[in-house]
């Protein structure tokens, strides 16, 4: 297999992220590892969105829904485990759990189902209507979670122990990072494979020319719906990891700011570029950390960078380095 530019760039960026963490571990800088973990989780959420936004042209301003559902999948299951109360007793007994694999599975399935339902309702619209409707769904979930007292309402839920993974000490920063990094690598691999697959070709055709897709006998709506569902599932998984990183969930995960941040990761790094969200999330966390310490107004700098990229570098940072994507996948 010969490596194309996008794959090579992906390997380099991933290697850089990993080296940073190994260096931090060697020099005893656990906080750097936590930052890198945060970046990896954001990147995972961004890769999820990039499936919809980059490949499929679906500008979703509601991906916080999936991020939040993933987060609350963790919060709800773990909070029941820490109070030793079952979620339900009827018709079947469902207990809480501290097992990460179960939490991830629940996060992925529930966010995929939410994406399927939201996609089915919204994907007949396009352009600004689609943006507004996805935004509205995000707000619906946000206010619902705020007003639902069972799981902390607007205060959110604190989880006092980190959930467990067989064979790992998940409280050790580098071990938790390893989990997140492994998921990120899998998602990146998935993105690159899908990009070159029949589905990827069809999805990018749905983005560029619906009439053409119909003329070859393919319904663009169903293609988009499948992509949106996959996208929601990946972002949902990121939400569960984010909740575990903070050992805390709150309705803020559902907020439009969260949706906006996920979009920013993708735009900063490069819409539709496999490694784009990783670069974007990395830069975001770096700015947030370095400038956020200096001033509460660090987002002004972020805004200026974002503006510059939208105006002068449509391909994001990846596009600046690699140029336009090549047509042959």
């Amino acid at each position: 297999m010969s490596l194309n530019r996008e794959t090579t760039a992906s390997l380099i960026v991933m290697a850089a992220l990993l080296s940073t963490v190994l260096w931090a571990e060697a020099t005893g800088e656990p906080f750097t590892i936590t930052l890198a973990t945060r970046a990896a989780i954001f990147a995972l959420a961004g890769i999820g969105l990039n499936l919809a936004l980059g490949m499929g042209g679906m500008v979703s301003l509601g991906h916080a829904v999936f991020f939040g559902i993933g987060g609350y999948a963790m919060g709800i299951l773990a909070s029941h485990a820490q109070t030793f109360t079952p979620l339900t007793t009827w018709p079947i007994l469902i207990e809480g759990t501290n097992a990460m694999p179960v939490i991830w599975l629940v996060a992925v399935i529930s966010s995929a189902l939410a994406a399927l339902a939201i996609g089915a309702l919204t994907l007949r619209t396009s352009g600004v209507y689609f943006i507004m409707i996805t935004l509205a769904f995000g707000q619906m979930f946000y206010y619902f979670m705020t007003g639902w007292p069972a799981y902390g309402g607007e205060d959110g839920l604190s989880i006092y122990v980190r959930n467990g993974f067989p064979g790992l000490n998940t409280l050790d920063p580098i071990q938790f990072f390893a989990i997140c990094f492994a998921f990120l690598a899998c998602a990146l691999w998935l993105y690159i494979r899908v990009d070159a697959s029949p589905f990827g070709l069809t999805l990018s055709a749905a983005r560029q020319n619906e009439a053409r897709l119909r003329a070859v006998g393919i319904d663009p709506f169903r293609i988009r719906l499948v992509a949106f569902t996959l996208s929601g599932a990946v972002t949902g998984l990121a939400g569960a990891l984010f909740a575990d990183l903070n050992r805390f969930v709150s309705p803020a995960m559902f907020s439009w700011q969260t949706s906006g941040e996920i979009v920013i990761f993708v735009i900063l790094g490069g819409v539709g570029r496999p490694i784009g969200p990783v670069v974007g999330a990395g830069l975001y966390v770096l700015l947030e950390h370095t400038l956020g310490d200096v001033s509460d107004y660090w987002q002004i700098v972020l805004g200026a960078i974002l503006l510059a990229i939208v105006l002068f570098a449509r391909g994001g940072l990846t596009g600046l380095v690699l140029g336009r994507p090549l047509p042959h996948g």
Partner: peptide
Amino acid sequence: LGQPYRFFSRAL
């Protein structure tokens, strides 16, 4: 060929 839902093989 009715095969758009293939995610891992390479189209080309």
